[in-house]
Structure formats: structure tokens, C-alpha cells
């Protein structure tokens, strides 16, 4: 039997990229790091109590008293177990990865919805991105960007982007055909169609995608910690490697709390857009 040297080909390909596109990766690293650092600095700058109040008020306005109290209590628990600063690091990583995933993902989803050919090409790539175990693209990520939060962010973006692309595509394609026809018949340009009809009607679906993307980014924090991203993932990871059951548990709980708060708040945004339409 002949062994297909798939691994060697891939290595050669990565080496080729590394040798020829290093300046590009360096520039990219600089840009992405700038985004993460700015978000990090900003979130660290806000005193813990103020952030808790802001998040609680936001949750209360979007959903109700229950979610407001839940968010405040949850975040206070994180503060009280001394994981506030780690939580902020993680939050910054999640926000910047999500931000970049949306900046790339939403336009890509729109393009897919408007062009069947694009959809046919992009769909298998998305499948690939989602099913390939995340550890696998950590390695090339480290080769291109070195250790630290940068490769973590890149791995997170790759892993977390597919849902928002898919759901943007789906949402736009699900806009009823006669509504699109009506907009066309009144002389909409394709830009007007997109901004005035398709995106607003697809918004609940797109927001569901945003929610998924945030959740998936959060699920990457421990994996990113393996290549040197700091934050709650690091706490969990050191708990695991040093058999510190208590520390690991605290880190895990903090991740769960953060996940619940982010999930409920983004979901509340989605339901509100929905409600406006049908009320």
C-alpha cells in the first residue's frame, strides 16, 4: 500500500507560507494585537464595580430584572474569587475574536446569499473549519504568529466564524421571495434591497449567529491557553496540569458564568429585534 504523504505536503505548504508571506503575517499580527490590546486596556480601565453595574443595567434594560440581578451576582462571584483580571483578559480575547469574526463573516455571508457559486465554494470550507479539531490549527498559528494571545485569537476566529457566516447566508435567503419582489418592483437598487429589506429581515437570524460565535469563542479559551493566551483558560489549564482541583474549578465556574451572561444578553438582543417585527 502506498502511503499518501499528506502531512508532508501540508508542512511544505506551511513552510512556503512562512518563508514568503512573513511580512504579511507580521503586519496582521500587529493589527490584530492592537485591537485586542485596546479592548483589554479599556476593560481594565473600568473599575470592577462600574463594569458590574453597566452590565447589570444593560441586561435589565434588554431583558428584565431577573437577568439584571443574575448578571450582577455572577460577575460579583468572579470578582470575589479573585479572577477579575483573568476574566477581563478572556473577555477581551472573546470580544476581539468575535469582532473580527463578524467583520469577516457577515460580509462573507451576504456574498454567499447573493451568489450561488460563492455559496457552493464557501460551504465546504466552513464545514472544514468547524470539524477540524481546533488543536490542529493551533500549530500553524504558532508558527506564523509565535506564542501568546495572537495565535489564540486566530484559532478562535477560525473556529468561531462559521456560524455567523452560515446564519447570515440563511437569514438573507429566508427573506420571503414576494417581499424581495415587491422591493424590486418599486425600483430598489441591490444596495437598497440589502440595507432596507434583506438585512433588517434577516437580523434575528444574524444575531443568532452572533450569539453562536460568541459562545464558540468562549469555548476556545482553554485551548488558546495552551499556546500562551492568558486569562481564565490559563487558570483552568494550570489547575489541570498541577492537579489543583480547587483552582481549576474556580476558573471553570468563571467561564460558565461569563458564558451564561454573554449568552443571555445577546439572546435578549435577538428577541427584541424579533418582537419589534411581530408586536
Amino acid at each position: 500500500m502506498i502511503r499518501l504523504p499528506l502531512g508532508e505536503y501540508f508542512e511544505a505548504f506551511i513552510d512556503l507560507l512562512k518563508d514568503n508571506f512573513d511580512p504579511f503575517f507580521k503586519g496582521m499580527k500587529k493589527g490584530v494585537l492592537a485591537i485586542i490590546d485596546h479592548i483589554e486596556d479599556f476593560l481594565h480601565f473600568i473599575p470592577w464595580w462600574l463594569l458590574i453595574i453597566l452590565v447589570a443595567v444593560l441586561a435589565w434594560r434588554l431583558s428584565g430584572k431577573k437577568l439584571g440581578i443574575l448578571s450582577a451576582v455572577g460577575l460579583y462571584i468572579i470578582y470575589s474569587i479573585d479572577l477579575w483580571s483573568e476574566m477581563i483578559d478572556t473577555l477581551s480575547l472573546v470580544f476581539s475574536a468575535t469582532f473580527l469574526a463578524l467583520v469577516i463573516g457577515i460580509p462573507l455571508g451576504i456574498w454567499m446569499a447573493k451568489n450561488d457559486m460563492t455559496e457552493r465554494i464557501v460551504k465546504p470550507i466552513l464545514d472544514f473549519m468547524q470539524t477540524m479539531p481546533a488543536f490542529v490549527y493551533l500549530i500553524p498559528s504558532v508558527i506564523f504568529f509565535g506564542l501568546g494571545k495572537m495565535p489564540g485569537a486566530i484559532a478562535t476566529i477560525i473556529f468561531a466564524m462559521p456560524p455567523v457566516v452560515r446564519l447570515t447566508n440563511l437569514g438573507i435567503r429566508q427573506v420571503p421571495e414576494d417581499v424581495v419582489e415587491a422591493a424590486t418592483s418599486f425600483g430598489s437598487t441591490s444596495g437598497q434591497m440589502l440595507l432596507k429589506v434583506q438585512i433588517p429581515l434577516a437580523m434575528p437570524t444574524i444575531l443568532a449567529g452572533v450569539n453562536q460565535t460568541i459562545m464558540l469563542s468562549l469555548s476556545m479559551v482553554v485551548i488558546s491557553a495552551m499556546i500562551g493566551a492568558r486569562g481564565l483558560g490559563e487558570v483552568v489549564l494550570s489547575g489541570v496540569t498541577q492537579m489543583q482541583i480547587g483552582d481549576g474549578f474556580e476558573g471553570g465556574i468563571a467561564v460558565v458564568i461569563l458564558a451564561i451572561v454573554l449568552d443571555r444578553i445577546t439572546q435578549a438582543v435577538g428577541t427584541r429585534t424579533n418582537a419589534k417585527k411581530t408586536s
Binding site: 419582489e181 415587491a182 418592483s185 418599486f186 417585527k277
Partner: peptide
């Protein structure tokens, strides 16, 4: 065509096709 659609012809649809948002 865009101008004809905007100024000269308007259409009413069977299932109304209103913009729900």
C-alpha cells in the same frame, strides 16, 4: 428600467408582500 419601476409602474401582490419590519 429602474426609473420605469420607480415612476411609471407600481405593483400590488397576491399575498400583500408588505415589509414586516
Amino acid at each position: 428600467l429602474l426609473q420605469v419601476r420607480r415612476k411609471k409602474i407600481a405593483m400590488v401582490f397576491q399575498h400583500f408582500a408588505l415589509f414586516p419590519h
